[in-house]
Design a protein around this nucleic acid. Structure first.
Lengths: 158, 158
DNA sequence: AAATTTCATTCGCTAATCAAATCATATTTT
DNA sequence: AAAATATGATTTGATTAGCGAATGAAATTT
């Protein structure tokens, strides 16, 4: 019974796999790619923000954010407006069409999850929440102090 | 309790985020990109297999698998050999250097997770396993759970 | 022997991503 | 005020990933 670690790792992978597949399906359904959809969600959630903010929230570079906004703008899902007070900034906002798109194609994975989660008995909901938070904490603990470990480095450095 | 759904979704996102960051860090440490590393892991776990197998296990097209093997071969991490019996097939196998690379830079996320998981009291291990499996099942309920595709190397291979 | 299937690879194309350079507009210093 | 510096967005140039269709080579089937 020692490979519970294995079992949990497999379960984790299955979760990752499911979300990955979901992203692709969703992308195909909306005609948008995953990164584009993420940006659209970010924009819609904030009602108005700059490319720099988008980059920070999406975890990509500014150049990439600009490129993604280009795509969305070309599709009429977001608009760009020069800042009045500071003309260097650009405000990106969702259009009606953009909001519609999100409403029409809500994240099916989230939907499925929510629906099933809410159907669980109370004790099981509590268990799932506790376990997920535990796992999240464990993984994040790793990322933070794993830096030295990661620099096993020079493996391929020149 | 509407809130618990939210909480669990947030926890899930945190887990996804952690794994994503991990992939990037790891890629940087090894000098390989994430897909390349995945392929290398698959190859190393199987000791010898065809591009077709790789494609199936990595969940990408055959053409993409070929391209990734190209990169790894150019770096001297894997070798290609024509099949003796059936000359259409190509056997891809890890080189010493390839195995070294994986040994030198093992997946830190898995490491951290395993370590912390094993430190948990028995009841909590059981809870985490149960919850992760539950979540996996819930997420997969929506999609068609392609079992062969789940066969992603290292972790779940003997 | 001819047709079909099966693999791997190549080709053309799109998308994501980054770093560095560029351009326009503040803000700060001298 | 003029010059220097800083900031924000974009452009440019490059690499990587990925797909589908076409190609080529080697079985296998008819």
């Amino acid at each position: 019974m020692e490979n519970r670690t294995q079992t949990s790792l497999i379960a984790l992978r299955r979760i990752l796999r499911a979300t990955e597949l979901n992203a692709r399906t969703l992308a195909r359904a909306t005609g948008l790619t995953t990164p584009q959809l993420i940006v659209l969600e970010i924009v819609a959630a904030a009602t108005r923000l700059t490319p720099k903010d988008i980059a920070a929230r999406a975890g990509v570079g500014q150049a990439t954010a600009t490129a993604l906004v280009d795509k969305l703008e070309a599709r009429g899902l977001v608009t760009r407006t020069r800042g009045e007070k500071d003309r260097r900034v650009v405000w990106v906002a969702p259009t009606e069409a953009g909001l519609e798109m999100l409403k029409a194609a809500p994240d099916p994975l989230q939907r499925t999850f929510s629906k099933q989660f809410e159907a669980l008995p109370d004790w099981e909901q509590a268990m799932v929440v506790a376990a997920l938070e535990k796992v999240g904490a464990m993984l994040n603990a790793g990322t933070i102090d794993a830096s030295p470990l990661l620099d096993v480095g020079a493996v391929d450095r020149k």
